[in-house]
């Protein structure tokens, strides 16, 4: 589906493991997961509850730290970054889209989208212009001055996608973004996400619905913290389909 160069890796997970607890009580939430998401690509992650989907997304966005292995965003390994530097990288490079939109209710759509740029030190006027551009890309520029409670769920989620990809951000991490929407509206949101990836963004979409995962270029299936299926190239998939016991 994408026309972007295939070698532009925006997100790389290299043999990432996350263990919660220690010794006797240790639980492996993720075990040796490797995954690349390139510019122009939307990758879906599926799996039952507790399979490690959310852990994977949190690690990819620098909200959680890997026990071993590396998470690399646009060439930068985030494991070596300390608090402020990590926050800055997140602000500049990574956007999140959540099930319940997470817009700030006291800010208008354009103010919500401009916020990460302003926090990053950009002047208000420039941040606003870039926010309007981002709103236009998801087709809701007319709602720029509206507050979240005056927007439908689908409109709020489009604003959230605009916020995720405002400015130079190219990586969008979406956690069940259609979970709170009816089927038709949810599909509209997926189309927007798909279009943004076709235009060069890199997307990681966590979902439990195959119908939604099918919008992705590749679907990765997790079970007990391990990748068990992938609809990647047949060779890779064959290798992954070896019994994992």
């Amino acid at each position: 589906m994408s026309n972007a160069p295939s070698n532009d890796v925006i997100l790389r997970l290299d043999n990432v493991t996350r263990v919660h607890g220690t010794d006797g009580t240790a639980v492996r939430a993720l075990a040796g997961v490797s995954l690349d998401v390139r510019a122009g690509e939307l990758v879906a992650v599926m799996g039952p509850s507790g399979s490690g989907k959310s852990t994977l997304l949190n690690l990819a966005g620098g909200l959680d730290a890997a026990t071993s292995g590396q998470v690399i965003i646009e060439g930068q390994s985030i494991g070596t970054l300390k608090g402020d530097a990590l926050a800055k990288l997140r602000r500049r490079r990574v956007g999140f889209v959540f099930q319940d939109f997470n817009l700030i209710p006291s800010l208008t759509a354009v103010e919500n989208v401009a916020l990460p740029l302003e926090l990053d030190g950009q002047r208000v006027g420039k941040a606003r212009r870039r926010a309007i551009d981002a709103l236009s890309m998801v087709g809701v520029q007319d709602l720029a001055d509206r507050y979240p409670d005056k927007m439908s769920g689908g409109q709020q989620q489009r604003v959230a996608i605009a916020r995720a990809l405002v400015g130079d951000r190219r990586l969008v991490l979406a956690d069940e973004p259609t979970g709170a929407l009816d089927s038709h509206t949810g599909e509209g949101v997926l189309r927007v996400l798909r279009e943004r990836c076709d235009a060069g963004a890199a997307g990681l979409l966590v979902t439990h619905e195959a119908r939604h995962a099918a919008w992705a270029d590749r679907v990765v299936f997790l079970r007990d913290g391990v990748v068990v299926d992938s609809t990647g190239t047949p060779d890779t998939a064959e290798a992954l389909l070896e019994p994992t016991a």
Binding site: M46, R191, D229
Partner: peptide
């Protein structure tokens, strides 16, 4: 059996991806 399930799921997901492209 698990392998039978996984092989089928991968194939069905690929089929769903094709259908979704057609639908788009």
């Amino acid at each position: 059996v698990n392998r039978v399930v996984q092989t089928q799921r991968t194939a069905t997901l690929r089929h769903l991806q094709d259908l979704t492209r057609l639908k788009q």
